[in-house]
Design a protein around this nucleic acid. Structure first.
Length: 744
RNA sequence: GCACCCUUAGCUCAGUUGGUAGAGCACACCCUUCACACGGGUGGGGUCGCAGGUUCGAGUCCUGCAGGGUGCACCA
């Protein structure tokens, strides 16, 4: 009767705080988070004993090294851990790779701010090397925080494979990726219009822009015989082209290329008339002047028509000498003064004070983005190239294709299964509108661009500027490396395979890539998901993951976003303290269809703490009354029915999990345990174990143990801690519940 | 402007391929001796946003409308 002693702990209510950390430690020490160290399969109710032949892998979307766990992570980690634990119990060699991201721009900005505050120095005072050292140290220092918090969620991550986006192996992968794309002609350097963040002093990608609706002024100026509309008078100095639609009847008297003399801000100028179909006849007066240096659309017209372009605003948001008397002024100061001057010359027609426009601001720094023509590095998404190897249906090895086509084919063919129709459409829509991706950033913290230049030869004799791209710096003298670093999403895009050892041909890469599953937030569908598809398609001819389930945001109960300014944040760790990680996981997952937003509801989490305690007491009853069950007897007809009922539900749950209907599966096992196991089976068992016949009692004892055993297994992926803690007391226990076989 | 999503009980949400509605919380009342008061039981409550259509049958498919949200583009 060994069971008697074990029952002691069940006499007190379940206390997650007392169990969870110790359990996690034991799991970690067992090595079972590492698929290489998983025990061989024992005979289950289904499947053969032996080696684990099927592989299953997920990479953790790497949280920011300097960040803390927020509700979104808690939700995302829960989903992934449920899937990984389920697949591990199904007998697969299951791998979940942990990692962190450097989040270069925001991390560097934070460290710079600290240095400014504490030492009154700028990054230029410190120098590149010193600053990078400081940022790196800061990142490393705060790494433990986020990793400890991920552990508290119960995440069964293989820590032996931990990766950091800036570690040596990942650097090697990034350099190699750059080199190969450069050699294929898909990475190029060019003068193009980019989004310049004057505050962060760096370019940012289109996806890092946040548009904010603002009420501002819209000005109408007399420009020779025309009235032109603008919201940005400060860019008008260089405007010597006036553009209208070729079919606009109002301006039929003017011809393309015709020049006119007119009085402008700083005196008389000669303007050239351009007819271009990109002009919207309905907007303003249907006439505009163009500023190619500071506007995407103007830049495109200028390119098409080979027009001159002049820079008006410098990198700090100040006016250049072309502005004459306004030189050196900031945009905000200059604007009104310029308008005043135009007014004094009688050139202001009218001003619309109620004009609504979307101001492009930098997501990270909040600065107003200033488009600029700059020499930057780009990835060409429409340039044809020959793909040496492809496993993507519809793309033959050795065929000519483009990165855009690869991204389309990966999802269209179903190689990346993106079952959510709406998100798939968003994805295609985004790719159709995709421009070349600007990958260079003018900050110091990050992967440096592996290109070197020199304009003299080894002997110091002048020569035409020579560029050299490779993983290692070139031999010879006088080389200088490009000062820019790569967009953080460049390295993130390699994540599924850089974490598996690429560019080396590692066994990990062979076994675990493509990864099996990815569950990102819809916020990063374009930023990350599509770029992972791009990179792994190009470099491996594979998709990065076979299945992607995009999840929603975790919001406050009133539906608003969690934000610092609203001060409505919820700390998941507080919830773990109060109710346990199991309860938090269930509270986030149950009843939240993947893809729609999740409302953070403390009452719901509390409810699952009560459920953990319910299960705890079920275990107590079963162990007290059936701990000595003989498992080699036959069920009575009535008990066989109970067993079949469980099997049917477990089968259903298994299907749900296979199809990633995690929220349904979680709810089903919850209801089974509470409404059937506890309310019906247990109540029904009370009289039987007391007054039943010998046969009835024996059968019922076996049933209770059997149902408890399998309920624990099925619930384990969702609530790993309480199930494992109860498992410790099970009479037949030989190993962790975590590596038991799934009962279907 | 283009696209996508949402609208189901007081609240937060499920409802997998069409077969006449579910959960949690909240609410009302009752119950503490033997798994659990971190409990048990009973109960009230929805013309599934509106209007059409397809179908033997629609919360579920189609069209239109209204409200809410999100993404993308434009903003000269």
């Amino acid at each position: 009767m060994g069971a008697m002693a074990d029952v002691e702990k069940f006499k007190k209510p379940y206390n997650p705080g007392a169990c969870e950390s110790a359990l996690y430690k034991r799991w970690e020490e067992s090595g079972y988070f590492n698929p290489d160290k998983l025990p061989p399969l024992r005979q289950g109710s289904e499947g053969q004993a032996g080696e684990r032949k099927e592989y299953f892998s997920i990479v953790l979307p790497p949280p920011n090294v300097t960040g803390i766990l927020h509700a979104g992570h808690a939700y995302e980690d829960s989903l992934q851990d449920i899937v990984v634990r389920f697949q591990r119990m199904r007998g697969k060699a299951a791998l979940w790779i942990p990692g962190t991201d450097s989040a270069a721009i925001s991390t560097q900005a934070r460290v710079e701010k600290n240095i400014q505050k504490e030492e009154g120095k700028t990054r230029h005072d410190l120098g590149r090397e010193e600053l990078v050292k400081r940022v790196y140290a800061f990142a490393k220092n705060s790494e433990e925080t986020i990793l400890g918090q991920v552990r508290r969620m119960g995440a069964s991550l293989d820590w032996s494979r931990y990766a950091y986006t800036l570690d040596l192996k990942r650097n090697r992968a990034v350099m190699t990726a750059f080199k190969r794309m450069y050699d294929a002609g898909l990475i190029y350097r060019g003068h193009r219009i980019v989004n310049w963040d004057p505050k962060g002093q760096t370019t940012i990608s289109d996806d890092e822009i946040v548009y904010q609706e603002e009420k501002g002024k819209f000005y109408y100026f007399k420009y020779g015989p025309f009235i032109i509309g603008t919201s940005r008078p400060e860019t008008k100095f260089g405007d010597k082209y006036v553009v209208m639609h070729p079919d606009d009847g109002r301006y039929a008297q003017y011809t393309d290329g015709q020049t006119i003399e007119l009085e402008w801000i700083n005196g008389p100028i000669t303007a050239t008339i351009i007819k271009d179909e990109s002009v919207d006849r309905e907007f303003g007066t249907g006439v505009m002047t163009i500023t190619p240096w500071h506007s995407q659309i103007d830049f495109e017209i200028a390119n098409r028509r080979e027009l001159d372009r002049e820079q008006i605003i410098d990198r700090y948001g100040k006016l250049l000498p072309i502005a004459g008397e306004f030189v050196g002024m900031k945009i905000a100061d200059a604007r009104e003064k310029i308008v005043e001057k135009l007014a004094s010359k009688g050139l202001v027609e009218k001003i619309d004070e109620e004009y609504l426009h979307n101001v492009a601001t930098s997501e990270r720094t909040g600065a107003i983005v200033e488009p600029q023509i700059m020499e930057q590095w780009f990835i060409a998404v429409d340039t044809p190239f020959t793909i040496p190897h492809s496993e993507i249906p519809g793309i033959e090895s050795g065929s000519t294709t483009t990165l855009k086509k690869l991204m389309m084919a990966a999802v269209e063919s179903g190689a990346v299964d993106m079952p959510q129709e709406g998100f798939r459409k968003t994805y295609f829509h985004w790719i159709e509108n995709l421009h070349d991706w600007c990958i260079s950033r003018q900050i110091w913290f990050g992967h440096r661009i592996p290109v070197w230049y020199r304009s003299v030869d080894d002997q110091g004799r002048p020569q035409e500027t020579e560029a050299y791209c490779d993983v290692e710096s070139p031999q010879g003298e006088h080389w200088q490396q490009d000062p820019d670093v790569l967009d953080t999403w460049f390295s993130s895009a390699l994540w599924t395979f850089s974490t598996l050892g690429w560019p080396e041909e590692t066994p990990d890469l062979k076994q675990f890539h493509p990864t099996s599953f990815m569950s990102p937030a819809y916020e990063i569908l374009q930023l990350w998901v599509s770029r992972m598809i791009l990179m792994s398609a190009f470099h491996l001819g594979q998709v990065p993951f076979k299945k992607v389930m995009i999840h929603g945001l975790v919001r406050a109960k009133d539906g608003r976003k969690f934000s610092k300014s609203l001060n409505n944040g919820v700390d998941p760790l507080d919830m773990i303290e109060k109710y346990g990680a199991d309860a938090l996981r269930m509270g986030l997952v149950v009843g939240s269809a993947i893809g729609s937003d999740v409302k953070f509801d403390e009452q719901k989490i509390k409810g699952y703490k009560l459920f953990a305690n319910k299960l705890w007491n079920i275990a107590r009853f079963v162990l007290e009354n059936a701990g000595d069950a003989d498992m080699n007897i036959l069920y009575t007809a009535r008990d066989a029915e109970y067993r079949e009922q469980f099997d049917a539900i477990a089968f259903d749950i298994t299907n749900d999990l296979e199809e990633y209907r995690i929220y349904l599966a979680a709810e089903k096992i919850y209801h089974y345990i509470w409404d059937v196991f506890a309310s019906s089976l247990l109540e029904d068992s009370k009289p039987i174990v007391k007054t039943g016949t010998l046969e009835e009692v024996a059968s019922r004892k076996k049933l209770l143990i059997s149902i408890l055993t399998d309920s624990l297994k099925v619930l384990h992926p969702f609530m790993p801690f309480v199930t494992e803690e109860i498992w410790d007391a099970m009479p037949a226990r030989t190993d962790f519940l975590m590596v038991e076989r799934w009962p279907v």
